[in-house]
Deep mutational scan, measured.
Amino acid sequence: QAPETKIVDKSRVACDGGEGALGHPRVWLQIPEDTGWVECPYCDCKYVLKGSKADAL
């Protein structure tokens, strides 16, 4: 199944896999201003900063 994409309001987000005990260790991710998105290294969930150029795609 394809990784999930989430639109977020802040450039710093936490990801834990979203499945409680079945998820992964919580990691904090920083969305770079130049790209407007970041992917979780564990679950490949893509976080897109709302209003960024990546959000316009």
Rank of each mutant, 00 (worst) to 15 (best):
L22D: 08
E4T: 15
E33H: 08
E33F: 11
G23E: 06
G18F: 07
R26I: 07
E33T: 10
C45A: 15
A56Q: 13
G36N: 03
G23P: 06
W37N: 02
A14M: 09
K53M: 10
A2P: 12
D34G: 07
D9I: 10
C40Q: 08
V13K: 02
W28D: 00
G20S: 06
L57D: 10
R12G: 05
D34H: 08
C45Y: 15
C15G: 00
A54L: 06
H24I: 03
K6P: 03
C40H: 08
C45D: 00
Y42A: 10
L22S: 11
C45R: 15
W28N: 00
V38Y: 03
P3Y: 13
K50T: 06
V8R: 03
A54G: 07
G51T: 04
D34R: 08
A14E: 09
V27F: 05
L57P: 10
K6A: 05
P41E: 02
Q1F: 13
C15E: 00
D34L: 10
A54F: 03
W28T: 00
R12Q: 11
W28P: 00
D44H: 15
V38C: 00
I7A: 05
S52H: 04
G51L: 02
L29W: 05
P3F: 13
A14R: 05
A56M: 13
P3R: 14
D9S: 12
P25K: 10
A14G: 04
T35Q: 09
P25D: 05
S11H: 08
Y47V: 02
P32E: 06
T35G: 03
C15T: 00
K46R: 14
D16I: 10
W37T: 03
V48K: 03
E19C: 15
C40A: 08
C43N: 00
K10D: 10
A2H: 14
V8T: 06
P25T: 10
P41R: 05
G17Q: 04
W37F: 13
A54I: 07
I31C: 07
K10F: 13
S11Y: 10
C43T: 01
G20Q: 05
Q1I: 12
A21P: 12
I7S: 03
E39P: 01
Y42M: 14
E19I: 12
W28L: 03
E39A: 13
Q1D: 09
A21T: 10
D44Q: 15
D34Q: 09
K50G: 08
H24A: 05
Q30K: 08
A56G: 10
V27M: 04
C40W: 09
Y47S: 02
L57H: 10
T5E: 05
V38W: 02
Q1H: 15
D9M: 12
S11N: 10
G20T: 05
K10A: 09
D34M: 06
D55V: 00
L49T: 13
R26G: 00
D9Q: 09
D16G: 03
Y47R: 01
K10G: 08
K53R: 09
S11W: 09
K46E: 08
Q30C: 13
G18V: 05
A14S: 09
D16C: 14
I7V: 11
G18T: 05
D44F: 15
A2I: 11
Q1E: 09
T5P: 12
G51C: 14
V8N: 02
G51P: 03
V48W: 08
V27D: 00
W37V: 06
G20F: 07
G18W: 06
P41K: 04
R26Q: 05
P41T: 04
D44R: 15
E33K: 10
V38K: 02
D44K: 15
K6L: 11
D34F: 07
A14I: 09
P3D: 08
L49E: 14
C15Q: 00
L22Q: 10
Y47W: 08
V38N: 03
S11Q: 09
V13M: 02
G23N: 09
C45P: 00
P32Q: 04
V8L: 03
P41L: 04
A2L: 14
R26T: 05
Q1W: 14
A54W: 00
P3W: 12
G51H: 04
P3C: 15
A21C: 00
W28G: 00
T5Y: 15
A56N: 14
Y47C: 14
L49N: 09
R12N: 09
C40V: 09
C45W: 15
P3L: 11
P41M: 06
G20Y: 04
K6Y: 11
D55P: 04
R12E: 11
P25H: 06
P3E: 09
C45H: 15
E39I: 15
G51R: 01
E4V: 14
G36I: 04
K10V: 13
P32G: 04
E19W: 09
T5R: 05
V27R: 02
L49M: 07
D44P: 14
G36F: 04
K6V: 15
V27E: 00
D55I: 01
P32K: 05
D9W: 04
